[in-house]
Design a protein around this nucleic acid. Structure first.
Length: 218
DNA sequence: CCATTGATCGTCT
DNA sequence: GACGATCAATGGT
């Protein structure tokens, strides 16, 4: 059941958007609740925090684009665990991407964190993202967001819902339903028609859309 | 602004 | 052995 996302008045109290039981529910509802949330990461060099402006839902056995679609492997094991943990994976031989694990324990789903605005530790974020031309580019795109926050393999599996955790989620600035937009996921070929990408309208930290590439013919 | 392309390697078939 | 939930550089309009 997926209905309530983006429907006017349908999301319930804003304070409940990031409750653990919400993350454990339908993945699109969890994704909706993550918009406007703050992800804050401590490191020896300092703390960087990002307000999330763009996310994508990936849901278990019904979603052919999900890393968990073909069952559990060493890489996607965290997705099969309880909600509220970080799933970090390596792509294209050089980039890291971060997800928040959602859904009930044993039913793998996750929300990819695709974009956000750096709201704390901006100097540290700039030093990690030296090629960024402007501050809105610091965490605009999933691999950029991971880099700005200093997240890579060691962060895989981290628990996010404890305020004392070095990697933690906070409620941040909840986004009104009227500002939520939906569309197809970026760069996804399988199930490309599913509008499981959610973003904040008119936010410059939302990444550019790119259609999924179909397999080229031989 | 837009389109194209090389980089680079873990993961799964 | 092929491909990917990407990025940055390049070159054109």
């Amino acid at each position: 059941m997926v209905g309530r996302v983006g429907a006017d008045g349908g999301v319930g109290p804003l304070s409940a958007l990031l409750e653990p039981e919400r993350l454990a529910g339908p993945v699109l509802d969890a994704a909706r609740g993550l918009l406007g949330a703050v992800l804050e990461v401590d490191s020896p060099q300092g703390t960087v925090a990002v307000t999330l402006s763009e996310v994508e839902a990936y849901g278990g056995p019904v979603d052919p684009a999900s890393h968990a679609f073909r069952g559990r492997t060493p890489r996607n094991a965290v997705m099969f665990g309880p909600a509220g943990h970080l799933y970090v994976y390596f792509v294209y031989g050089m980039h890291w991407c971060c997800n928040v694990v959602c859904g009930p324990d044993g039913q793998a789903s996750a929300v990819l964190l695709r974009g956000g605005r750096v709201v704390d530790g901006i100097e540290l974020a700039r030093s990690r993202r030296s090629t960024a031309r402007t501050d809105v580019d610091l965490a605009r795109g999933p691999a950029r967001l991971a880099t700005a926050l200093g997240l890579a393999a060691p962060a895989n599996g981290a628990y996010l819902l404890d305020p004392a955790s070095p990697i933690r989620l906070g409620v941040g600035s909840p986004v009104a339903d009227s500002a939520v937009r939906r569309g197809p996921r970026v760069g996804v070929a399988a199930a490309g028609e599913l509008p499981w990408r959610l973003w904040v309208a008119d936010d410059p930290t939302v990444s550019a859309y790119r259609a999924g590439t179909r397999r080229r013919r031989t």
